[in-house]
Design a protein around this nucleic acid. Structure first.
Lengths: 398, 398
DNA sequence: CATATTTGTCCTCTGAGCAGACAATCGGCA
DNA sequence: TGCCGATTGTCTGCTCAGAGGACAAATATG
C-alpha cells in the first residue's frame, strides 16, 4: 500500500518517461508527449529535470519532413560504467558495460577459488586493475554480481550456493569494502530475467510475463509476472529446477531425488554421453571434468551418434520439465540460455514434442521459446542490469 | 504503462481508503488519516465523495478515551448483494452475500447437469427465485461463478473443464442474458485466492505472496505474487496440479501421467482405500461413487487402519507436491481447503515431513499452512469476491 | 465550569498536469 | 529572396489535489 502524495504523479511519469527514452532513443520531447498522451509542456519540465540530474542529455538535432527540427534525447551513459561479475563453479567472468548494459570492456576471467576470502581478494584486485586500465570509462556506478545459488532477502549474503560450496557468505559488504563501490548480488537466473525486463528494445515487445531458463551446471530460473520479478517470501522463488520428474529418480545436488535439474544439467548430459551414472554429490571423474558440453555439441555436429543421443535425451527432459513451468506460470515467452543451447537447432523439435505431452492448455503448446546464445553473455548482462535497473526504477534522491 | 494525470493521486488514494475501510471498519476519518499518513482534510474530501456515491456511510458514534467522539465509517453494504455460484462435477451450490462476501442467504444446491444449456436454464430459474424470495436484499451487483476448469482471458468462455465435460462454453454472455445481471467467471482455485487477497479480516490480510490449494475432485490452485493474482498469458497459470511426481506414474485426467493431482485427488485417495487402481479416465465403480472422502475421514477417526493409511499416503504426496509449489513460488503462506482437510489434524505432520524432504531453502520448511474448513465455503466466497473485488481493486501504479 | 484532548472542517499554499498562446526553426514554393 | 505552413520547445494562466495549520465542536476529567 503506497499512498499517493503530492509528488506521486511526477514520480510515476518520470519513470515512464525514462523508460520510454531508453526504449525509443533517440527521441524528442514532442515524441514523448505523443507516446505518453500528455502535453509537451509537462514533458519539458520532467526532461529538463532529468537533464539537470545528468540522467538524460540532448544530442544532435533530428530530421523531420517539415517544420522545426527536434532536439534528440538520450540516456546519458557517457562517463558512467558498470562492472558485471558472473561467478561460475569453475571460472569467474568480468565485463564492463554502460548504463544500457552494452559491453564497453570485453570479458575476462579467472578461476573461481572455493575459499571465499581468497576469491574476494582476487576479484577485488581484478576490478581495481580494470578501473585503472580504463580511466576513460568515467564514474563506475557499481558492481553487479551473479551467483548460481540463493541470495538472502537483503541481497547482502549468499545464503547457499551448493556448487560453489558457499554458505552464508556476506559477500556484498565484503566486496563493497574491498572495492569501494556499491555492490548488488543476485541469483544468476533471476538476474537474466531482470535484464530482459529492463533490457527490452521496443521491437522485443513489452512481454511482462515470461521465464528465463539458464541451463548449465545447474538450472537457473528467473520468473517475471506482471512485469515484476518474482522473489517470494525468502527471496528463493523460481527454483523450478527442483520440481521432480520422478521422486524416485537419480540423486540431485540439492539432496532430493529426481529433480528436473538432475536430468538436464551439463553433468547429467555429459554422464549420459559417457554412459556412466555420476552423482552430483560425488567427485567428478577426470575424463568428464576435462570434457565440456561445448565439446559434446561439436561432436554431435560432427555426426557422433552417441553425442546426438545424449543431447536428444536431455532435450526431452528439458521439454518435460518446461511443461511444469508452462502449466504453473503460463508465461507468454520462455528465454533459454546455456552451453547446450548452442545446439538449439538440434534440440528444439524434441523439446517442443516433449513439452506438448504434458502441457494442459492447447494454446500454450505454441509458446514462443527464444534461445539466447552464449556470446550475448546473458548472465553478465543480468549482472549489469542489477546496477542499472534501480537507476531507472527509482527516482534519484537529491 | 499508465501515465499519471491530474486525478491519478486521487484515484490511488480513493482505492486505498476504500480498502482500509473494508479491512478496519468501523473506522473514523482520523483513524484513516493515521493509517494513510496523510492529513485529515484530504481524507474528509475523499470520504465525503464516497458517501455521496453511496459507497460508504456514517454509522453510530464511536468510543474514545478522551476527546470528541468519532463518526464511524462503514462500507455501505446495505441493499447491495452478490450471488455466488460454485459449479462442481456433481452438484452446483448457490449463495447470496453482501459486498464483504459475508453470507446473507444460506447455501442451496442442485445437481449439475452435463448439458450446458439445461444447466443454464436451471441456474437461471434458481437465481430468479432467490431474487424474488428475497426482495429485501436490495440491488444485486452481479453473479460470481466458479468452475473446476480453465476460463479464457476475457472471462467470457469456459475453454475446458474436463470434469464437467465442457469445452468452449460461452457461459458468461448466456448467463447474463438469462439473468439480466453482470456475470464474472473464474477458475475455482484462483477465485479462492482472490477472495484471500481481498479477504476482509485485517489479521488475515497483508500477505501478498501466497498460494491457495483446493484439494477435491481435482487440484485447484490460485497463486498470488506481489499482491496480484497470477493469470499468465492464456489465463491458465497456476496449474501446479499437473506438475509430475513421476512422469511414468499413474494416468491423470489431463492425459499425462504421474501428475500430482493423480496422487492426491479425492478419487486417488478413495481408490487407495479400496485397494483398487482406478483411472480417472474410466467410469468410476459404483462402490466408490457412493462413498465420499468425508466418509473416509469418519472411518479414519473411528480407528479404521486402512482409512488412516489411505489418508496418510495422500498426505505424503500432498507434501511432496507442495514442495514444488514452495520451491517455485516461495510463498509466505499456503491456504489449503477441500473435503480431506477436515482431517488436517491427522495429516499435517505427514505433509510437513514430506514437504521438508524436497524443499530447498531451510527457512521455507516452516512455512505457514492454514487449513480452510469447508463450512467457510471458500469457493463460494471466492465466487462472490469475483464481483466485489473489482469494486475495491486498486489501479496499478507505476 | 475550566481544561485538555480528539475529531472534523475550512482556508491558504504548493506541486503538477491541462490548455493554449507564441517564438523559433525549417522546408517548400512563387 | 521572401512568404507560408508545419513542427518544436517554452511560457503563462488555470484547475485539481495533497500539505500545513487554524479553529470550532464535542467529550472526559477534575
Amino acid at each position: 500500500m503506497r499512498v499517493a502524495h503530492r509528488g506521486t504523479s511526477r514520480e510515476i511519469n518520470r519513470q515512464i518517461l525514462l523508460n520510454l527514452v531508453r526504449a525509443w532513443q533517440p527521441v524528442s520531447r514532442a515524441d514523448l508527449a505523443r507516446l505518453m498522451g500528455t502535453r509537451r509542456g509537462a514533458i519539458s519540465l520532467i526532461v529538463n529535470d532529468l537533464i539537470a540530474d545528468g540522467i538524460l542529455y540532448e544530442g544532435a538535432k533530428g530530421e523531420t519532413a517539415r517544420g522545426r527540427k527536434p532536439k534528440f534525447l538520450y540516456i546519458d551513459s557517457r562517463k558512467r560504467s558498470v562492472i558485471a561479475v558472473d561467478v561460475r563453479p569453475t571460472r569467474t567472468f568480468v565485463m564492463v558495460t554502460d548504463l544500457l548494459t552494452e559491453p564497453v570492456v570485453g570479458v575476462s576471467s579467472f578461476p573461481t577459488q572455493r575459499d571465499a576470502g581468497r576469491f574476494l581478494k582476487t576479484l577485488g584486485a581484478r576490478i581495481r586493475r580494470i578501473l585503472e586500465d580504463h580511466k576513460d570509462l568515467g564514474r563506475c556506478e557499481g558492481i553487479g554480481l551473479v551467483v548460481p545459488g540463493m541470495v538472502d532477502s537483503t541481497g547482502a549474503c549468499i545464503s547457499f550456493a551448493p556448487r560453489l560450496g558457499w554458505r552464508d557468505v556476506p559477500l556484498r559488504d565484503l566486496l563493497e569494502k574491498e572495492s569501494g563501490l556499491p555492490v548488488h548480488i543476485e541469483n544468476s537466473g533471476r538476474a537474466c530475467a531482470i535484464a530482459q525486463v529492463w533490457g527490452v528494445r521496443r521491437e522485443a515487445g513489452r512481454s511482462s510475463d515470461f521465464v528465463f531458463l539458464s541451463v548449465s551446471d545447474g538450472l537457473g530460473i528467473g520468473f517475471v509476472v506482471n512485469g515484476e520479478i518474482v522473489r517470494g517470501r525468502h527471496n528463493v522463488a523460481g527454483e523450478f529446477g527442483h520440481t521432480p520428474l520422478d521422486i524416485n529418480g537419480p540423486p540431485c545436488a540439492c539432496g532430493a531425488n529426481g529433480c528436473w535439474e538432475a536430468y538436464v544439467s551439463n553433468l547429467a548430459t555429459l554422464s549420459r554421453y559417457f554412459g556412466r551414472d555420476i552423482s552430483p554429490r560425488m567427485p567428478i571423474p577426470a575424463e568428464i571434468a576435462s570434457f565440456t558440453v561445448e565439446d559434446l555439441v561439436a561432436r554431435a555436429r560432427g555426426g557422433d551418434a552417441k553425442a546426438i543421443a545424449a543431447l536428444q535425451a536431455t532435450a526431452r527432459y528439458l521439454g518435460l520439465g518446461l511443461a511444469s513451468v508452462v502449466n504453473a506460470a503460463d508465461p507468454a515467452r520462455i528465454f533459454i540460455s546455456g552451453e547446450i543451447i548452442a545446439a538449439w537447432d538440434l534440440l528444439e523439435a524434441t523439446v517442443r514434442q516433449a513439452l506438448s505431452t504434458r502441457v494442459l492448455a492447447p494454446a500454450a503448446t505454441s509458446i514462443e521459446i527464444t534461445a539466447v546464445p552464449s556470446p550475448d553473455h546473458p548472465r553478465l548482462r543480468g549482472a549489469a542490469a542489477l546496477v542499472t535497473a534501480p537507476i531507472f526504477a527509482a527516482p534519484r534522491v537529491g
